[in-house]
Write a protein that binds this DNA or RNA. Structure first.
Lengths: 183, 183
DNA sequence: CCGCAATGTGCGTTATAACGCACACTCAAT
DNA sequence: ATTGAGTGTGCGTTATAACGCACATTGCGG
């Protein structure tokens, strides 16, 4: 979950290298001292948003260019915690929450007979469920809906909702939780 | 173009007010002193990316919530829905692109021997691959990486990348494509 | 009216982001 | 060799981000 702040320097360095710019040149373009730019690239300093903004706008690049986390690294979520809650639901994080992207993603397995009630999330939160294996019922907006493998469902999660599996086999789903820009 | 930095504080203040949180409470949630939070809200200080990250992460909110307004969320990058392309890759849309959410999601199946090269997307686009069945190799940042079922990979898609399946069985993956805000 | 707990702000201190400048260190061309 | 322009890094100083604590204010129950 830790944002790997050194990576923003690496991305800046790479960005600069790709278009053959010197630190001096970049300093002139964006109004940040070349010593500072050097320190940022080496991870010896984490910039303020003000200076990062000067850098991004001076280089005419989106901010996300330097902020995005864990690019190009294969992640193996099996070793990190497969968490099991009281209802027996097994939750495995696939992509941890990233403030830049605004969502997180889990793999969820519901054993037979499992029932999991979920209290409302923050306003505007939207869940996306992708059914992978088995069969599941989802309580949303006052009604139970049945999903089978291959089906998907998007729903507002800022209200009471729940999952249950009354089928004969364990159910596997992916759950993507999106946290909104505006409430 | 350059949104005033004072707006960061205003958005934070509004965010906090909307869910009735005190400075003290937020300080406990995200590990930033309440004095600092107060100064940021009043525009007396512009945070470093490290602290802004702590704030956003602690509040389970995307960074863009504090960095940009809700403006400029226009993106229509999807090609017309096709099911099977030249390489034999079978693409099934799961969630269509939504400007509010900023992403779309596909289920992709690669038959044995399938090779699909992808030209760079727009700057800042990020792909998230979740391996479901079989085995796949992904070309990213100049190298091929192997993924097996259960593994995930996040990478910057604004550069050349590609998929291939040299395994004995068809490969199934989910692909989530995230389109960033443009600065 | 009186605690009293909670909230936000002011203040002194520390940590560090950011600057300007000078110091190696390359390569080219003299 | 020897300049010289262009590169990145180290250093001392200044500006300010960030902290911890104490203070003033509000709101509420006794």
């Amino acid at each position: 979950m830790s944002p790997d702040l050194a990576a923003i320097g690496q991305r800046l360095k790479r960005f600069r290298a790709e278009r053959g710019l010197s630190l001096d040149r970049v300093a002139g373009l964006c109004g940040v001292s070349k010593a500072m730019l050097g320190q940022i690239e080496r991870g010896e300093s984490t910039p303020t948003v003000a200076t990062l903004w000067k850098i991004a706008s001076g280089l005419q690049a989106p901010l996300s260019r330097f902020l995005v986390g864990e690019s190009g690294v294969v992640h193996r979520p099996t070793s990190p915690p497969r968490h099991r809650d009281a209802s027996g639901m097994i939750v495995t994080p696939l992509f941890a929450f990233d403030p830049v992207l605004g969502f997180e993603m889990f793999a969820i397995e519901l054993p037979q007979g499992c029932l999991s009630e979920s209290s409302p999330h923050a306003p505007g939160v939207i869940e996306h469920v992708v059914m992978l294996e088995g069969e599941m019922e989802l309580f949303v907006e006052g009604a139970w809906q049945t999903l089978v493998a291959g089906e998907v469902l998007r729903f507002a999660a800022d209200q009471p909702h729940g999952y249950r599996n009354r089928g004969p086999a364990p159910a596997k789903v992916h759950d993507l939780i999106h946290y909104p820009f505006s409430a």
